[in-house]
Simulated scan of single mutants.
Amino acid sequence: MPFFHKKRLFIFLIGFIILVALIGFSLRDRENPTSVEQFVKDAVGWTQGLVHAPIDYVTTVFDNIDDLQDTFHENQVLREKIAEYKGLFYDVQKLEEENAELRDLLEKANSIRSYIPIQASVISRSPEQWMEKVTINKGNQDGIKKNMAVITAKGMIGKIETRSKFTSTVKLLTGFDQFNRISATIAREDDSDIHGMIEGYNQTSEKLVFKIIESSDSDLKKGELVSSSGMGGLFPSGLPIGKVTDVKPDQYGLTRTAFVEPVADMYEIDHVIVVDREHDTGNQSGSGKDVTS
């Protein structure tokens, strides 16, 4: 039995020495590794490549997803910024337009010497009566009275229909009918003035109806300006109303009717001037009469 133990010990020592020798042999710097080493290295390299390829692919996919998410968020931020800049641009544009309108309105007020203008702003407009009425922020306490003329910087838009202490309702020219008439005239330098009445609004042609009651022999021309005559006792004279677009005689050829396009914009009304006729020192007499409902 001791012999076998010694034999096993001897074999173990020989194997250990051979293993150490192989390890030392493999650790030496050699230009040409053995076939076994080459095989092991190639196998390990191939295995590493096989493992790293899907890992690199998955890593690339996640990186691309992160990049897409970052790009998406950046696009959202940029869109919000662009929308904000557009809003600011429209606000500035609106302010510029409103500033220009107020400046024109101020110049119009300064040019009015025959009466005291009452400046007001539109505070509401009913969708059902968009082309008929607007509400302004001035009323009885501001000196507003019924049937006062209402104008913008471009021209006349209507008259005061009803008023309360702090607000008033303006009946627009586009809401006029046969019960709401304005004495009007086409003034000419050669004194061949044309007189008539604005007798309502034609919904089909979208024009004011100017019934001519007194005129010279000269023909009425398109583009001529129709203004308030002041002969009705309610409105001051010289308020621009509109320009002639068409003229039609009646079936008997005795009278003529002109269609007039308002000079003021009836769709966009923000600031107005209410005209106090009591301060008008112009013509107070005449044969015409403004009829109000």
Rank of each mutant, 00 (worst) to 15 (best):
L9D: 13
F259W: 03
Y115I: 06
N64I: 09
P236F: 02
D191K: 10
I112P: 03
G15D: 11
G238E: 01
P249D: 06
V40Y: 13
R103L: 09
L102D: 04
L27Y: 14
R256Q: 10
L22T: 06
D193P: 04
S126V: 03
T59G: 08
G158L: 06
Q129P: 03
N140M: 11
P240D: 01
N75R: 08
F3I: 10
L88A: 07
S293T: 15
E96T: 12
E101D: 13
A149V: 02
T245K: 00
A153W: 07
E214N: 14
V291A: 12
G223I: 01
K221Y: 04
D63Q: 11
I151V: 07
N140Y: 14
K243E: 03
D42F: 10
E161G: 14
S215V: 03
A21D: 05
I212N: 03
V274Y: 08
E278N: 12
V122H: 02
I17R: 02
F176Q: 05
I123N: 03
V275C: 14
K248E: 15
I144P: 00
K108I: 02
D66L: 11
A109D: 05
I112N: 04
A258Q: 00
I136E: 04
V170C: 08
R163L: 15
I118Q: 05
Q178V: 14
S293H: 13
E214R: 11
L208R: 00
R28L: 10
